[in-house]
């Protein structure tokens, strides 16, 4: 987390300070540096001059909505906008694409196996003779569902769990965090292999398993942040005017966690897509004809030395582009949350 504190003596930003200060009128503060005596001693004189403000100022001064402000800031980050565009394209490609570009992704057609790209099959065919472009669309569906599903599920759960442990503290914290430690000590592939042996893994199971693994690091991160947030003066101030614990968590703790949580969340999405790819690469994912980009990647690698490049590169390209897009969206969201770095 970036914390921009008070500029120190000799800090270059200090020389530039008056520009920002001038944004607020009605200020005439002489400020001998660091002098507790000097600070704020101008309040009285100021009051006398600004008395008229108080009476005139009966109209409502509600500021513009937070959402609009957030959207503007996000839009200022061009790269994040591109990332958002990419994700929208991927979703349309995977979910709307098959409605336009009809292919049979269930039947095996050995006559058409391993065809190179042509007018009939724009990206060639798979070893089972299925159209690769259509397959990328279908594979994209499961990939996106797993990525976003795991990202959301593990972030939400990790956030609540970590915030609870950190804010309540004491015995609750100790017990909750030991559970996390215990779970972290089990390798996630063990879970997957175990589950694959017990039940036939479908998409929901994959999402649950990957979430069960990814929320742990989120919870740890959130708990650590919460521990430090809990002691901040503004939290004490909120207690001081009578806020309840849940009000404090909602208004002060959670918003200040968002920075790390959002960035961590996008990493989780990216990691989940890659983990899903490796699970299906090992053949532990949903069985054929279901597929995913990771699954297609593994097939492509198996056939790499036969020169069937179209079975490998398009899937690899889509995975990399999607993960990158999600990461830059994360950066954009971090900008929105990190209000101190916004230029206005």
């Amino acid at each position: 987390m970036t914390t921009t504190g008070e500029p120190r003596q000799g800090d270059p930003t200090e020389a530039a300070g008056p520009a920002t200060r001038a944004m607020v009128e009605g200020d005439s503060q002489s400020e001998p540096s660091g002098a507790p005596g000097g600070n704020g001693t101008a309040i009285g004189g100021e009051l006398l001059r600004d008395e008229h403000l108080a009476t005139r100022d009966a109209e409502v001064v509600e500021p513009t909505s937070w959402l609009r402000l957030a959207a503007t800031t996000f839009a200022e980050n061009r790269l994040a906008l591109v990332g958002l565009g990419v994700i929208v394209f991927m979703v349309l490609f995977s979910f709307v694409g098959p409605l336009i570009y009809h292919t049979n992704q269930v039947a095996t057609n050995l006559i058409d196996e391993n065809l190179s790209p042509s007018a009939a099959h724009l990206l060639g065919t798979s070893p089972e003779g299925r159209d690769e472009l259509g397959r990328l669309m279908v594979g994209g569906q499961s990939t996106i569902e797993v990525g976003l599903g795991v990202g959301l599920l593990s972030t939400l759960f990790g956030l609540v769990y970590g915030a609870l442990a950190g804010y309540v503290g004491g015995v609750v914290d100790a017990v909750l965090m030991r559970i996390v430690d215990a779970m972290l000590s089990i390798p996630y592939l063990f879970f997957v292999v175990l589950l694959a042996a017990l039940i036939r893994p479908n998409l929901l199971v994959v999402i649950l398993v990957l979430s069960a693994v990814s929320w742990l690091s989120t919870a740890r991160l959130v708990r650590g942040e919460t521990l430090s947030l809990r002691e901040r003066d503004y939290v004490v101030a909120a207690k001081g005017f009578g806020s309840r614990a849940r009000e404090i968590v909602r208004r002060h703790v959670t918003p200040n966690l968002l920075g790390v949580v959002v960035v961590n969340g996008t990493l989780t999405v990216a990691n989940a897509i890659l983990a899903f790819a490796s699970i299906t690469y090992l053949g532990l994912g949903p069985p054929p004809p279901a597929t995913s980009w990771g699954n297609m990647l593994s097939t492509g690698i198996n056939n790499l030395f036969d020169g069937y490049w179209w079975q490998l590169w398009p899937a690899a390209f889509l995975i990399v582009v999607t993960v990158l897009a999600i990461n830059v969206i994360g950066d954009g969201l971090a900008d929105v949350v990190e209000v101190r770095l916004q230029k206005r």
Partner: peptide
Amino acid sequence: LGEVGLSR
């Protein structure tokens, strides 16, 4: 805000 001499 008026009382402490800050703008709206």
